[in-house]
Design a binder for these strands. Structure first.
Length: 226
DNA sequence: GCGACAG
DNA sequence: ATCTTGTCGC
């Protein structure tokens, strides 16, 4: 049940991105922070055996308590190429999401959405394929530039593309700790994406959703591989 | 042509 | 992403 087309090469992959980019919805604020469900997704790889494991962890947005977990294991179908990450991750992530009985609510993934060379990163791609509201929270600035945000939790600064567009924000989630990089994927605006991220990063630098998904997909990979 | 580059 | 020990600190 892979709704993603696995391209034959990089040229085809970029063409798919250019085609799907027009389907991204950017004029919806998205679900209000702190209510409903939030689902973190992440993947881990065993490049030796071409195995990939994905995890989806559903949290109660208000308490950050785990509501449901699901995993999926698959075969790596595409190499890692900067700008084409979605083709490597999404097939297995979709399988994990489909294994959930809960409605995922807002989906939070590792990596970027709008902040992408062709403005169609992983979070945007996943959003278009599922129709769900999705945001991306990355651990480094990729190719984008930014000024260091203030040192306090909640401080942020624009993440800028070469053409000057604000494609995301560098958001300080912990005092004096390196910021995270937030960008919108689908059906969520940037201010709301940052608000969600800040609530999810209540106890650590990274959102609880991605921390939980990261731990789970590593465990799934270990159990699938050995 | 070279370097850099989410995970 | 992944390869990888100990170590400083709350």
């Amino acid at each position: 049940m892979q709704m993603i087309r696995t391209p034959e090469d990089e040229t085809e992959a970029r063409a798919i991105q250019d085609e799907l980019r027009g389907l991204v919805v950017r004029d919806e604020p998205g679900p209000p922070p702190g209510t409903g469900l939030v689902t973190g997704v992440d993947v881990a790889y065993d490049d030796e055996r071409d195995v990939v494991a994905a995890a989806a962890v559903v949290l109660d947005a208000a308490t950050l308590a785990v509501v449901e977990e699901a995993t999926a294991v698959g075969t790596v179908a595409f190499p890692y190429v900067p700008g084409l990450l979605a083709f490597r991750e999404i097939p297995t992530v979709l399988a994990a999401l489909e294994a959930l009985s809960s409605d995922p609510g807002l989906v939070v993934c590792d990596g970027y959405g709008r902040a992408h060379p062709r403005r169609f990163g992983l979070a945007a791609h996943l959003g278009v394929l599922t129709g769900l509201p999705v945001i991306g929270v990355a651990k480094n600035p990729f190719t984008f530039s930014y000024e260091q945000p203030g040192g306090r939790r909640g401080d942020s600064s624009p993440l800028l593309a070469d053409d000057g567009e604000e494609v995301g924000r560098a958001l300080r989630t912990r005092e004096g700790v390196k910021p995270v990089f937030v960008s919108v994927g689908h059906r969520v605006d940037l201010a709301n994406a940052c608000a969600h991220t800040l609530r999810l990063a209540r106890d650590y630098r990274l959102p609880e959703s991605t921390r939980r998904a990261d731990a789970l997909c590593r465990r799934a990979l270990r159990e699938a591989t050995g």
